[in-house]
Design a protein around this nucleic acid. Structure first.
Length: 287
DNA sequence: GAATAACAGCAGCTCGATTA
DNA sequence: TAATCGAGCTGCTGTTATTC
């Protein structure tokens, strides 16, 4: 339902009742025709691909088998938009994670004077940098205080490894950037009666912070540090893994840290943003 | 030389993230 | 909320290595 709502064009294309859908003889033709129509209308390649997925899902939900939905004709039609969508893997330098850590270090000294939004942004950044969780996973997590100042957090993953995870942050030697410090100071903002409310409870608004607003809070901190506006929240994961790999993390370490099901390929393609200058320099030297 | 195993790489699809 | 972009898993395919 969510997918279909998002793809308004798709629902328009198959504007039929459930009974009508069940009577369709050849759903692949309907999908192919609609994608071809979108192509004529100069709709973007990603939109064409998404609409195809959405209509296909609609038919699948009615019980049509895969073979009826994905034949060679549609395969050929989809080649153009899918080829155009492939991303160019550029060699480009990402901002350094240290930039954000330095910001956290400065702000930690005055964390009681930060605005609620900025405080939340810093806390999320600290958690993301040291856990490589996604924003959605951070938003729906629970935090429990342990002995010795450690915090255990529990969340569910829908992407990647498909089980619930729980991980424990123990105090780091540099306390000013440590997630335990930031979670503690974030919770210290609220009054006694709200102590047991969920982690992202806002004292000022008396409600839980929304996903979109959390994204804005993180962007606010990133912008304040002068990071290019085009960088997304996910780039913090990238910066974290890139730094780890640059410092010599082994493949096993980075796979475990990133929690990808197929670690090496994904990390190589999307998260290892180190330049190849060092290896080129070494190759250029010979006896 | 054929059969099989192991591996790498890619395409396709799905769903998270962002923006207007 | 609609539209778009982008990340990442699954499964397929072709290549290389190994065994028979």
């Amino acid at each position: 339902r969510v997918v279909l709502e998002q793809r308004g064009l798709a629902t328009a294309a198959v504007n039929k009742s459930r009974e009508e859908l069940l009577r369709v003889e050849d759903p692949e033709v309907i999908i192919a025709n609609f994608v071809a129509y979108l192509g004529d209308e100069q709709v973007t390649d990603s939109s064409q691909t998404n609409c195809r997925t959405a209509i296909s899902m609609l038919f699948k939900l009615q019980g049509f088998p895969n073979e009826k939905l994905n034949g060679s004709a549609l395969h050929q039609i989809m080649k153009k938009p899918q080829t155009a969508m492939r991303k160019d893997h550029k060699e480009e330098l990402l901002y350094n994670l240290d930039k954000l850590l330095r910001y956290l270090q400065e702000k930690n000294q005055i964390n009681t004077t930060l605005s609620e939004q900025e405080h939340l942004g810093c806390t999320v950044i600290s958690i993301m940098a040291f856990s490589t969780l996604r924003l959605i996973e951070i938003q729906r997590k629970k935090a429990t205080k342990q002995e010795n100042g450690a915090w255990t957090i529990q969340t569910s993953k829908f992407k990647g490894i498909s089980y619930d995870i729980s991980l424990t942050f123990r105090p780091l030697s540099n306390k000013s950037v440590c997630p335990t410090t930031w979670i503690s100071s974030w919770l210290a903002r609220r009054s006694k009666e709200n102590r047991n409310k969920c982690l992202w409870w806002l004292q000022s608004k008396s409600k839980e912070e929304t996903y979109e607003q959390m994204s804005k809070a993180v962007h606010m901190v990133m912008n304040a540090e002068g990071i290019n506006k085009k960088e997304t929240v996910t780039s913090i994961r990238k910066a974290s893994m890139t730094k780890g790999i640059d410092q010599g993390a082994t493949k096993q370490e980075s796979d475990r840290f990133s929690k990808h099901a197929d670690g090496s390929g994904i990390v190589q393609g999307h998260y290892n943003m180190n330049l190849n200058d060092k290896i080129r320099e070494r190759l250029s030297n010979f006896e």
